[in-house]
Design a protein around this nucleic acid. Structure first.
Lengths: 197, 197
DNA sequence: CATATTCTGTGTCGATCGTTACAGAATTGG
DNA sequence: CCAATTCTGTAACGATCGACACAGAATATG
């Protein structure tokens, strides 16, 4: 394998792109901004990532595999489905506000909501949103199967409800809501758990 | 008052702009798109509305005064605060999905969430979002004052919680959720009302 | 060392962005 | 009818967009 070696760290550059897309979204993050943030000239960027659209998809995948998964995994933690959902909501409340290391909001919840993003990106982002809804449904179904929840519970409605709370918290985090404020909303949402506390 | 009369209906053009901004957001709606949708050439548009940013602000104001107010008013309807909040949530579930006459989603909930919109627009949109939060808080405080709710209720948390549900429903409506699906989430959210049903 | 290969940096491409100059058309007031 | 005024339509402005041509520099292989 001949050829001049790449002078930048592909993974580090991808992560820098992820943070910029996270902050600005797809359109508002220009290639000029991206080159600056990634420390790479545009021909090198195109050689490594093909196009802005492909770069976004790669950055989004990286986001899902790291930032996203770390929080969504909390749904599986806890002895009961109720504990799992509460862990997920509280985890979101902690993760969504701006911190020293990450922007406010969520690439999944807030990505491609304005239509008009490239179709492939809209498809990828919506798929992850629906995957989370499926995960919620699955955990609720399992809770019904093992008797934690009555089989009279409307899984569809309950799943969409918790998804709504999560996505709404993402918007509020963008508006500057603190983790404590979002925790309050999350705790309140748990009061809707079927059968009470 | 001399001068050639305007050949287009300013209000009709503004409403056409509103629908386009509603569907596409600020950046994705180009002046070319807007001229097409409004049936006006760009010099006439600039003469009537000054700039794209000012046009958005005017369209947004129009949205708030019509589409928005019609739904938010439901918070005040109903004998109790609980009924008011439920009316608001159900009203949102009906209004948010795409219909024959209007795009999916909400200019208030989903506007200027990607930063990087002109500062004046971000300021205006966030202000309306916070106004709705204030309205929720006010209705809850009133409910405590007249004894409907215990004064142990965390108004801040409860208000943010219902705002989250509304904003999350707006995202799901953009993803194609139906009114029936959003109603399910709304009904479920009412189960979190303090003191149970 | 020679060659093939791959990256880097400069500079620029055509397209589109928001915006406006300019000339002609349509109106009101004198 | 003339002047002043305001709109309409054509055409184009400079800026920025995403993307790339090209030449030179740096590596591996033979």
């Amino acid at each position: 394998m001949a050829g001049r070696p790449r002078e930048f760290d592909r993974d580090a550059a991808l992560e820098a792109a992820m943070f910029l897309f996270w902050r600005k979204g797809f359109e508002a993050a220009s290639m000029h901004d991206l080159c600056d943030a990634m420390g790479v000239r545009s021909p090198s960027l195109y050689a490594a990532f093909e196009s802005k659209e492909a770069l976004y998809l790669a950055a989004f995948e990286h986001y899902v595999a790291t930032e996203g998964q770390a929080v969504w995994d909390k749904l599986g933690e806890g002895a009961t489905a109720r504990a799992g959902v509460e862990n997920l909501l509280i985890g979101m409340a902690e993760a969504l506000p701006k911190s020293r290391t990450s922007p406010a909001g969520c690439m999944v919840a807030l990505g491609a909501v304005s239509d008009e993003w490239p179709a492939a990106i809209t498809r990828a982002v919506r798929k992850v949103r629906l995957d989370l809804l499926d995960s919620l449904r699955a955990r609720l179904e399992a809770a019904i199967a093992n008797g934690e929840l009555s089989d009279a519970v409307d899984v569809e409605a309950l799943g969409r409800f918790y998804l709504s709370v999560i996505q709404g918290m993402a918007i509020q985090a963008k508006d500057g809501a603190t983790a404590a404020e979002l925790r309050g909303a999350a705790k309140t949402a748990m009061a809707a758990w079927p059968g009470g506390a």
